[in-house]
Simulated assay, not measured.
Amino acid sequence: MATSTRQELLRSAESFCNAFANDKPVEEILSHFSTTHSISCFEHGLPALAPFLGRAFTKPAEYLDTVAKYLTYENMKFFAYMIDAETRKVNVQGSARFTWIETHESWDEVFTYVLDFDHEAKITDWNVWADSGAAYLAKVGKLKDLKQ
């Protein structure tokens, strides 16, 4: 596949990830999603562990709002971008410190995004793999017990 496609996908992925990491307004984050394709935002995990896990959100704003009800994050960074220009996918790792709002319990983690892009280099699918166990333990106020 052409180098220009790889560069275009990398630029789009970096732009999205930087907007997210720098806590840009939701409108700016949403501008990275396709308006011509159906969208899927899916964070892998057992739905019973957290309200944003294991269900497909067809509206990115709904996924972002749901996550924001429960989690805050800081020091988010992205690295290790891997581009598959043929399938129009970018895999990227990130790291951040997350806090469950209600219990104030925090943890550091490394997570992975797989982003699928349309032909305008806009996101059609956003898959997230993160530490659902830490999120659940923070939710129920038990994460601190394991950190001692």
Results as ranks from 00 to 15, higher is better:
S132A: 14
Y81E: 04
H37N: 05
H119W: 00
R11M: 11
E105S: 14
L64P: 09
Q148R: 12
K122I: 08
H104E: 11
C41L: 07
F98Q: 05
K59W: 01
F98G: 06
A121T: 06
H32T: 02
A96G: 09
W107N: 08
T124Y: 02
F79D: 03
D131Q: 06
D125V: 10
S40R: 12
P51Y: 00
K69E: 11
L64M: 14
H37Y: 01
E14T: 11
S106G: 08
Y63Q: 01
R55E: 06
V90C: 15
L64I: 15
F57M: 07
K24E: 07
W107M: 09
T66P: 14
F111S: 08
K69H: 01
R97T: 15
D116H: 14
G45W: 00
F117K: 02
A121Y: 03
Y113S: 05
K139A: 15
L143Q: 06
P25H: 02
V26R: 08
D108H: 08
K122N: 05
V90H: 01
S38P: 15
N127C: 12
R11L: 14
S4V: 06
E28N: 08
A96L: 12
G141P: 15
R6E: 11
S12E: 08
Y63H: 06
P60F: 09
C41M: 10
T5I: 15
T103R: 13
F98R: 04
E27M: 06
G45H: 00
F20M: 14
E28Q: 09
E86T: 13
T124H: 01
F20E: 01
V67S: 03
D84Y: 02
R6Y: 01
Y113K: 09
F78A: 03
A135N: 09
E120L: 12
S95F: 01
A13M: 10
K122M: 07
T5W: 01
S12A: 15
A2I: 07
N75K: 09
P60L: 14
D125P: 09
F111V: 03
S132L: 07
V114K: 10
K69F: 01
I39Q: 02
T5R: 13
N127Y: 03
T99P: 12
S95Q: 11
N127T: 02
K24N: 02
F20H: 05
F111I: 05
L146G: 13
A50M: 13
T99M: 13
M76K: 04
R11S: 14
V128I: 14
K77S: 06
P51V: 06
H32E: 03
D131L: 10
V26L: 15
T66M: 14
A85M: 04
A61G: 05
H44N: 02
M76R: 03
G133P: 13
N91K: 07
A130M: 13
P25R: 02
R11C: 07
G54I: 04
G94T: 04
A121E: 00
Y70I: 04
S132F: 02
A61P: 11
R6L: 09
V110D: 07
T36E: 11
F57K: 05
F98A: 08
L49N: 00
E120Q: 14
K77M: 04
K59M: 10
T35Q: 10
D23A: 15
S38D: 14
G94R: 01
S95R: 13
L137D: 03
P60E: 05
A61Y: 00
W129D: 03
Y70A: 08
Q148D: 07
N18C: 11
T99V: 12
T87R: 09
Y81K: 03
